[in-house]
Each structure stands twice: as structure tokens, then as C-alpha cells.
């Protein structure tokens, strides 16, 4: 198979499964309703998933062993969180985050 076909087929296959993950719940919930218990459970999804996405960037994984701390990301999270508390403005938060990590990498020379 040519590289072109290989890449295109992979993109289409990946596109199909990611699309189904997003769309199927919408289609199914048109027909079915979720119980109170499930809704209460889903109520926690926003904070848990955003925390998990954040925290997973703070460590480097070594399967079978304890993860190590990703110091640049951990240190950059400080000013980022502080800017969130002070500004409550996503644009400011993202800029502070990117500049913090850029500066940290500049200083440690990584």
C-alpha cells in the first residue's frame, strides 16, 4: 500500500471512531433517558475530567513504577492558576501559562 493510501485510510478510520464517540450518545439519548443516579454521576464529569487532563501533564509515566514529577509543567501551573484566580479570563490564563513554560525551558536550557 502506498504511503498516501496508508495515511488516508488511517485518517478516515480514526475519524469514524472519534465521530461515533461524540455522536452516538446524542443519538441514543434522543430515545432513552438517563436515571437520576446516572445524571448525578455525570454531574462530576466536568471537574474530574479537567483535573485529570491537568494532573496527567504534571507527571511522567513509567508503567510498573511510580511516576516522576514533570517539574517544568508543575512550576508553570503555579502562575497559571494564580492568573486564573486573579483574572478569571481564559485568554490571560493561557498566555500566562505558555509564557511561564517558555521561560522555564529557557532558564533550564531544555
Amino acid at each position: 500500500m502506498s504511503t498516501f493510501n496508508y495515511t488516508i485510510l488511517t485518517i478516515l478510520g480514526c475519524g469514524l471512531v472519534t465521530w461515533l464517540s461524540r455522536v452516538l450518545p446524542f443519538v441514543l439519548l434522543k430515545k432513552f433517558s438517563l436515571s437520576e443516579t446516572v445524571l448525578e454521576y455525570l454531574n462530576f464529569v466536568p471537574i474530574v475530567i479537567m483535573s485529570a487532563l491537568w494532573f496527567s501533564s504534571l507527571f511522567t509515566q513509567h508503567l510498573g513504577h511510580l511516576p516522576t514529577i514533570n517539574w517544568p509543567n508543575l512550576i508553570a501551573s503555579g502562575p497559571t492558576l494564580l492568573s486564573a484566580i486573579l483574572s478569571k479570563n481564559l485568554l490571560v490564563i493561557v498566555i500566562v501559562g505558555v509564557v511561564s513554560l517558555g521561560l522555564i525551558r529557557l532558564i533550564i536550557g531544555a
Binding site: 471537574i47 479537567m50 501533564s57 497559571t80 493561557v94 501559562g97 505558555v98
Partner: peptide, 9 residues
Amino acid sequence: VAMFIGLLY
């Protein structure tokens, strides 16, 4: 990551 920190807060 910064965006998730902001959205979480």
C-alpha cells in the same frame, strides 16, 4: 493544559 486549569477554576 493552561486552558484546562482556567476552565477548571
